[in-house]
């Protein structure tokens, strides 16, 4: 069995939303697509969004935050095997900035582990958008993302880190409307 290299201690401890580099993580919940777009705006380089061919929910180029639409490659796959193969292949490729995958079925431990090794080999971060409760044990972190209601002219999100292999868990209420790559934390008092 191949052992993943130890990650150097993250310097970005101050920013809870910077993803572990060269790892595969998971996001679930109704706001997982928003979380994926938020992460996409923070990763430079080509973006790959891999989804089954029959998936009706697609990114709409006109409504994406600035700078994402032209970097985004949409990859349609006919079967689950093709989907996993495409995720692995894009993770393994060096130029990829961020790989977003939408597996339809829960990943087996073997498949999840394989994706981790591919991410490590290609130094690429992968983000799997999963259904509720279909997480894989091999995932580095797991986020639960939901849109939240807020005051007028706000786009509130509730992002909680439910699983973290190397660090603490947390729950954040943030405000991100796609205009910048940074998000505003909503103060506790404001809620």
């Amino acid at each position: 069995m191949k052992i993943l290299r130890d990650r150097p201690l993250s310097t970005a401890m101050t920013d809870p939303f910077s993803l572990a580099p060269a790892r595969v993580l998971e996001a679930e919940g109704a706001g997982r697509n928003t979380f994926a777009l938020f992460q996409a705006s923070r990763h430079p380089g080509p973006l790959f969004w891999i989804l089954p061919q029959h998936e009706p929910l697609r990114p709409m180029a006109r409504g994406l935050p600035a700078g994402i639409g032209e970097r985004l490659h949409l990859i349609e796959t006919r079967s689950e095997t093709d989907l996993l193969w495409a995720i692995e292949e894009t993770l393994r490729a060096r130029p990829s900035g961020l790989v977003i995958g939408e597996p339809a079925k829960p990943l087996s431990l073997t498949a999840g582990r394989r994706l981790q090794l591919a991410a490590e080999a290609g130094q690429t971060t992968g983000l799997l958008l999963i259904r509720e409760g279909q997480g894989c044990n091999a995932a580095e972190t797991r986020w639960k993302c939901d849109p939240a209601a807020g005051p007028a002219d706000s786009t509130r999100h509730q992002w909680s880190l439910n699983k973290n292999k190397s660090g603490t868990l947390g729950l954040w209420a943030v405000q991100w409307d796609g205009a910048t790559t940074a998000c505003h934390m909503v103060s506790e008092a404001g809620q």
């Binding site: 032209e70 985004l72 949409l74 990859i75 349609e76 796959t77 093709d82 990829s96």
Partner: peptide, 17 residues
């Protein structure tokens, strides 16, 4: 990478906006 993906999935399925 696009060539590899296209040869397996079909070039019609590797899209851009």
């Amino acid at each position: 990478l696009i060539s590899r993906l296209g040869n397996r999935l079909g070039f019609d399925h590797v899209l851009r906006f």
